[in-house]
């Protein structure tokens, strides 16, 4: 019982620190690239969070009240479940399922469902458009992450994340399967609708699915996005960068360092690359990314042959 309580507290702590970390790194990149309006990276996140906290909640005409209130919470919950699957060191794994990879694969489509609910339940034009556009594009790249993760399960001969880390003791998957990490990171940007793949909440729809939400609901929604990106970075570091493996330093520190590198990379992409045009990205996803995922899987299979 105490072990599960400690694990729950660990996930909660990583969740809270992760949100702050995402805000800091994102603003630091913006300042470094000369984008205006980012403010002090360390204090500005608190100001914007506080302003959302005291802002009154918005209501729309005849929303689906239950889904409208639950969607941000559900999204944050799914992201937290993703964080719980991450093995932080050899004996510090909050939830070490034998089918961890499959559960992670289930969290992504469930997150897609929740994003759709968030936009649909407001009963407003722009949020509906954002949700609909997000889903029609999201269905095109969900498969990519499945294939990439099957690729890392092959050399591990297991669907367990800790086994995937141990299989990389000789050589990290990022070298064995070089296509894997970039494709996985791209899907991560898509699921947390960040930067170039922000099809749900982008400016051309005046905020898309969250155009009608304000106050604390919006704060939870934004925090959920950040936690989802952290979870993607941590799973990416686990699956491709050898997780807790590394010399001298303890495993926990290595894992945090690798997660932060992947996270910083994702946030830099978010600041550097403009948003893809949705219709063009649909073609890119089906014609380029999905075949690349197939290539990655065949590559992993050939590589794993004895």
């Amino acid at each position: 019982m105490t072990a599960s309580l400690t694990n729950a507290l660990l996930v909660m702590a990583i969740l809270a620190i992760g949100v702050y970390l995402v805000a800091i790194i994102n603003r630091a990149w913006a300042n470094a690239l000369g984008h205006s309006g980012a403010g002090n990276p360390f204090t500005a996140p608190f100001y914007s969070a506080a302003s959302l906290w005291v802002a009154p909640a918005n209501t729309t005409e005849a929303p689906d009240a239950m889904a409208w209130h639950l969607a941000p919470v559900l999204y944050l919950t799914l992201a937290a479940m993703g964080l719980a699957l991450v093995p932080w060191s050899q004996n510090l794994v909050p939830v070490d399922l034998t089918t961890g990879i499959v559960l992670w694969g289930a969290l992504e489509p469930l997150a897609t469902v929740v994003i759709f609910l968030h936009g649909w339940s407001a009963n407003a034009h722009l949020s509906m458009l954002g949700a609909y556009r997000y889903v029609s594009l999201g269905l095109s790249y969900l498969l990519v992450s499945m294939f990439v993760l099957i690729g890392v399960a092959l050399p591990a001969e297991s669907l367990q994340f800790s086994a995937v880390v141990e299989s990389q003791a000789g050589l990290w998957n990022v070298i064995r399967q070089p296509l894997g990490l970039p494709l996985f990171l791209l899907v991560g940007l898509g699921i947390s609708f960040w930067g170039p793949l922000n099809f749900a909440d982008s400016n051309d729809l005046a905020g898309g699915t969250s155009s009608e939400s304000s106050g604390r609901a919006r704060l939870v929604w934004q925090a959920g996005r950040a936690v989802m990106l952290v979870a993607f970075s941590a799973i990416g570091a686990t699956a491709f960068l050898g997780g807790w493996l590394g010399p001298v330093l303890p495993g926990f520190v290595w894992m945090i360092l690798k997660t932060m590198v992947v996270l910083a990379m994702a946030l830099l992409l978010g600041q550097l690359i403009p948003r893809f045009s949705p219709d063009r990205f649909l073609t890119i996803a089906w014609v380029l990314l999905l075949p690349l995922a197939f290539v990655d899987l065949v590559w992993a299979g050939l590589e794993a042959l004895p």
């Binding site: 399922l97 559960l103 289930a106 992504e108 489509p109 469930l110 897609t112 469902v113």
Partner: peptide, 8 residues
């Protein structure tokens, strides 16, 4: 778990 992702 497979049922979760299939059905989602």
């Amino acid at each position: 778990v497979a049922l979760f992702f299939m059905m989602a």
